[in-house]
Nucleic acid binder design. Structure first.
Lengths: 192, 192
DNA sequence: CCTATGCATTGAACTAGGACAAGAAATGAT
DNA sequence: ATCATTTCTTGTCCTAGTTCAATGCATAGG
């Protein structure tokens, strides 16, 4: 059960077997059926979830009821509302499973214990956030500077497996374009 | 010279006077005239700069020569290309002073020393990145879900002092709209 | 096997915002 | 003070993308 997460976390073998062992005992295994809300607006996010199996989306609904997908997460990704999790503030986001999921969960308490016992993990988590930030920055740039077609092509290049797993209108919402227009972009691309 | 940075970093008094003292000795003071490029595409970013005085922009130029401003930074903000700084990878960004600046600088070496000597700083920097990530997320949402006028109003609400300091076309570039259209939005708002 | 529900496609009419151009206003260097 | 450069404004025309509505297509549940 822990192979993939250990391989991911400990790529550079910075940890002793004992430390990894402790890390694994602290993770909570959880199965969740599809279409489950793991987090709703107003709740405090009490988990960071590593996805062993399944697919999840994180999204925001603005004051006009307009929905924006912030992130898709599949196997070997983490998902959480970091701001809400760390600062124990009510979240503005929704997190929903799109498929049946198998998860490994950290809670604020277990994460705290882990960091106390093995402070080296601070670095690991900082790297995760940093990569997140980079990805978010690139996405912002593309959102601003690219056409709908370019954004779509970029998306399928970056996440080739996701289009087969999630509804097209969700991808449109992620790209910041309407579902209808994405459909038109796709038919245009197919004709070429 | 160190009052503001110390107040910012050590809000919750988590540090001993010695630790703060060490932190301060490690910071390098630097003055930079306006319109200086602190970082160019292709270079490895070797600084994290805390702004004592002045105003800086960070931006990206895409393959069509289209410019997107990622961040404005003024007094008491940090600016850097974190990805490039930490992973020693060539940056894709430009960082330019818009006014004469007074900076306090961390280099990869001094930051490493600081973290070695006072590991508690890991937490501080993680919080900084986290806040950055939150801000970036909010901005992405606004970029996707709001009209030009809403984005502009949001911007001046969030950063009321910046419009007086930077050129309007820079704000347009930050908001992801054309300079001409921002001008039209503003005249429309002024008439109301 | 049938039917309800959600999903994707297509078309027509509309609009927010872009591109271009030209003038006005501000800023700065000499 | 003057000229040059940059910045801001305004108008016209244009287009990428939206909205709405209709239709066909799957899929899941009884």
């Amino acid at each position: 059960m822990f192979e993939s997460i250990n391989a991911n976390i400990c790529k550079k073998n910075e940890f002793t077997p004992d430390e990894i062992e402790y890390f694994n005992t602290i993770l909570q295994y959880k199965e969740v059926p599809k279409k489950t809300l793991l987090l709703q607006e107003g709740e405090i996010c009490n988990f960071e979830a590593y996805i062993l199996k399944g697919c999840i989306r994180k999204y925001y609904i603005n004051e006009n009821g307009f929905e924006v997908i912030i992130q898709f997460a599949i196997e070997d990704w983490w998902i959480s509302d970091i701001a809400s999790f760390h600062e124990k503030k009510p979240s503005k986001l929704f997190i929903e499973t799109l498929e049946d999921c198998q998860l490994l969960i950290l809670t604020p308490e277990t994460k705290e214990m882990l960091l106390q016992k093995v402070p080296k993990f601070e670095r690991i988590f900082r790297l995760l956030i940093q990569r997140n930030l980079s990805a978010m920055q690139n996405r912002l740039i593309d959102t601003i500077a690219k056409s709908a077609q370019e954004k779509y092509l970029e998306f399928i290049k970056l996440y080739p497996t996701i289009p087969q797993r999630v509804a097209q209108h969700h991808i449109a919402s992620y790209l910041g374009i309407s579902a209808e227009f994405l459909s038109k972009v796709r038919t245009k691309l197919a004709k070429q």
